[in-house]
């Protein structure tokens, strides 16, 4: 074996080790709740209503976040590409802002703007706060969604397809939903995976807005029951990956891929 490929293997092993070690450690720790033996005792917490409710809540928020951000990003990318290509650098910069501005700053801004004595008291009721949380997550997802959909749309001849549809009598809505969206489906999906993962794991914003998401629940559990918290982490990890796998299976383009 050449030394260069030995080096490559070493690098890969270190990388895998680095990523898997904490996960394996968490699994191992979660099994040690009963002294002196490995057991699934810590996993009994999965049967509690609090866990199920918080996880379900996070899943719903994640799905809504995906839907809202797709509805915002797809038309934006479409118009920037078709009519306002000069705006692209500006739009790209705006979509990057959530990566630059820490979530804590974002949420304090929200609390100042939308507190119960403001002109738009979104934090006044639980429902309105949920909406605020949703929009905060849409903002967090923006860099990933935008990038994925933008690169997806560049592979499609948006202009000609639009013109073909227009000459057949299609209006804007028809073009966006029956011509453009289906053809950037895999790009939308990859954006959706990332969004899903971000929302399931988010803690800062939800905690400061006091919403019962999985992240805040996990934090509460972790404060007093470390074994259960590890078990929850492992399960959350597994469910997140399983959900993304399901999205992959159901959302995938089922047509066989054939080269031209």
């Amino acid at each position: 074996m050449k030394t260069s490929s030995v080096g490559a293997w070493v690098a890969v092993c270190i990388g895998v080790f680095y990523l898997l070690m904490p996960l394996m450690g968490t699994v191992e720790f979660s099994l040690r709740m009963l002294r002196g033996t490995y057991s699934f005792e810590a996993y009994k917490i999965l049967g509690t209503g609090e866990f199920q409710q918080s996880f379900l809540f996070s899943m719903i928020i994640a799905l809504l976040t995906i839907i809202v951000s797709v509805l915002i990003v797809v038309p934006t990318v479409y118009f920037v590409q078709l009519r306002l290509p000069k705006l692209r650098p500006i739009v790209e910069f705006i979509t990057l802002l959530p990566l630059v501005i820490p979530a804590i700053v974002l949420v304090f801004g929200y609390l100042r703007l939308y507190n119960s004595s403001s002109w738009l008291p979104l934090t006044g009721t639980a429902e309105a706060t949920n909406v605020l949380l949703l929009f905060a997550y849409v903002a967090l997802a923006l860099p990933y969604m935008y990038r994925a959909i933008d690169s997806g749309m560049r592979t499609v001849d948006v202009r000609t397809l639009t013109e073909a549809a227009e000459s057949l009598g299609a209006g804007l809505g028809t073009i966006l939903f029956t011509v453009i969206l289906p053809n950037v489906r895999s790009a939308v999906l990859s954006g959706a995976f990332l969004t899903f993962a971000i929302v399931i794991g988010e803690f800062t914003i939800a905690s400061l807005l006091d919403r019962p998401v999985f992240g805040t629940y996990l934090q509460n559990v972790g404060a007093g029951k470390p074994y259960n918290a590890s078990a929850l982490s492992v399960v959350a990890f597994a469910i997140t990956w399983a959900s993304m796998g399901l999205m992959q299976v159901f959302g995938r383009d089922r047509r066989p891929k054939v080269a031209h």
């Binding site: 499609v156 001849d157 000609t160 397809l161 013109e163 073909a164 549809a165 029956t178 011509v179 289906p182 053809n183 489906r185």
Partner: peptide, 8 residues
């Protein structure tokens, strides 16, 4: 020229 059929 580029056909422009809807791929989906």
């Amino acid at each position: 020229q580029a056909y422009a059929l809807f791929p989906n």
